[in-house]
């Protein structure tokens, strides 16, 4: 698994397109949000900035990169090649998505640390960490499911849009308007509960126990995503 991850990391840094879409763009967008934190915190809150930054990185840096990478590896039969070795399926998939996941998590942590440094520290760091990890798991599983609907790396530019834009839109909606209205709907949407968890974790003022149902809903989305991935993922191109 580590050999695959190491080789994947090498390939990411040799591919300028992946490097730009997976690293530069999410960081640039997130940097803008942090730079304009006063304006965006007036619009929502600091928690909203944290949530939108997290979803931007995880949607473009992790989810889109993972779908594009896996579709590409499948199209050129690299997945079949890896399955011709003694490596197990779980080990292959973990190795392939691990570099993008680690890079995205490092990006999220660094950007949130910068946000906390230039503004105020988050009120509940453990809750924030749990929210980031659960959202990461959801985005990885959604990526595996989306690969099943994606025929090529080029096609990934289209197939990744619904999930990417949806989670960012939901994060913006929940982050800006809160959950006083339409609470159940907002929390059930993909990324809705995760956004509220991040907002609560950063802004504080909400008992930890009140965030547990949000964690349960987010983990429910992880379970749904994993189930979709198991059902939809394909190892070889359609013939």
């Amino acid at each position: 698994m580590l050999a695959i991850a190491r080789s994947e990391m090498t390939q990411i840094f040799r591919n300028r397109l992946v490097l730009v879409t997976g690293l530069v763009i999410p960081v640039a967008i997130s940097g803008y949000f942090v730079y304009e934190h006063e304006r965006f915190s007036d619009l929502g809150s600091l928690g909203y900035i944290a949530a939108i930054v997290m979803f931007t990185v995880l949607a473009f840096g992790l989810y889109t990169t993972a779908v594009t990478t896996l579709a590409s590896r499948r199209q050129n039969l690299f997945l079949k090649r890896l399955r011709s070795t003694a490596a197990g399926d779980a080990s292959i998939l973990t190795g392939l998505v691990l570099p993008a996941t680690v890079i995205a998590l490092v990006q999220v942590v660094v950007i949130l640390v910068v946000l906390g440094t230039v503004t105020t520290r988050p009120a509940q760091v453990p809750l924030l960490a749990v929210a980031v990890l659960a959202t990461t798991a959801m985005m990885v599983a959604l990526a595996l499911a989306t690969v099943g609907l994606t025929n090529s790396p080029e096609h990934a530019q289209v197939t990744t849009l619904p999930v990417s834009l949806s989670v960012i839109a939901v994060a913006s909606w929940v982050g800006i308007t809160g959950t006083e209205d339409l609470a159940r709907l907002k929390r059930l949407l993909p990324g809705g509960s995760a956004t509220e968890m991040v907002v609560n974790a950063w802004n504080g003022g909400v008992p930890l126990l009140d965030s547990l149902p949000l964690l349960a809903t987010t983990l429910g989305w992880v379970a749904v995503s994993v189930a979709l991935a198991v059902r939809l993922f394909r190892w070889e191109p359609r013939r």
Partner: peptide, 15 residues
């Protein structure tokens, strides 16, 4: 079924 961005040596090492 090899990755186009890896070298020959890296491909043999990996597989």
């Amino acid at each position: 079924g090899f990755s186009p961005d890896l070298t020959v040596e890296e491909s043999v090492d990996l597989i």
